[in-house]
Design a protein around this nucleic acid. Sequence first.
DNA 1: ATGGGGGCCTGCCGGC
DNA 2: TGCCGGCAGGCCCCCA
Length: 283
Amino acid sequence: MPELPEVETVRRGLAPAMEGGVIARADVNRPDLRWPFPTGMALRLTGKTVLGLRRRSKYILADLSSNETLLIHLGMSGRMLVSGDPLGDFVRDHPAPQKHDHVVLHMENGARITFNDPRRFGAMDLLRTAVADEHPLLAKLGPEPLGNAFDESYLVARLEGRNTPIKSALLDQRIVAGLGNIYVCEALYRAGISPLRKAGKISEQRVRSLVPIIRDVLRDAIEAGGSSLRDFRQADGELGYFQHRFDVYDREGMPCRREGCEGHIVRTVQSGRSSFYCGQCQR
DNA sequence: ATGGGGGCCTGCCGGC
DNA sequence: TGCCGGCAGGCCCCCA
């Protein structure tokens, strides 16, 4: 559910409570999420210092002093709640336990990080830091959309000859890592490209235009997440969701916002997922 | 190799 | 008010 901007927002929200801190205790309340937790996870976390928090695609990686890295994926419904932060960034006290609180990290500094995930599509794993990139979930990921390896010539080459709709191609994490349904819809809208168009049949110029547009869409969303992060700190420390103004996503039937366009947003289903687009100005 | 569909889970919302 | 179908932002796996 959370896409790259949401995961980056979560990472930033966790950082003050976790980076440089020691995990005093880990409560692991069930044996698995999407997959079984690694053997002895609670013990392998206990007493370890969190050296840093990184993000790769939609994954958060917490590098530990044990030369292991905790891999966290929020799935569709995973949330992080930070409470009791000693720096005063989060005002709320530790909350009462909720249904679906699957893993709770108690930091030595007094902070508590609660991973709550009703649908349990999320995941956690422990891997050796030195070979973290080789983890099965990370090994086949394409370039970061905000990184240097994702550029115009790369995208042109990857889409060339592809018979799949551009919507599916941009959702393919092997082509570019971190986009999900919402931001693909939004990027295609800004580019004026129909989600139904075959990836290999879009002019090179239009494919090239997608690269800066994807970056802008993600940057805007991260910025919005950053501002809502400040609200979270004042409110309840819940990380993982934020309000963002979408142009097409979940706007079926509403008027297109493009200057001079008289169209309306339509919804269709592509490979089981909703696509939202303007039938008038996206071609 | 490529593309499409099913399935995993729970919660919520709209319609009857 | 209650029940039921549909739907949800991800990702793996299997099939043709």
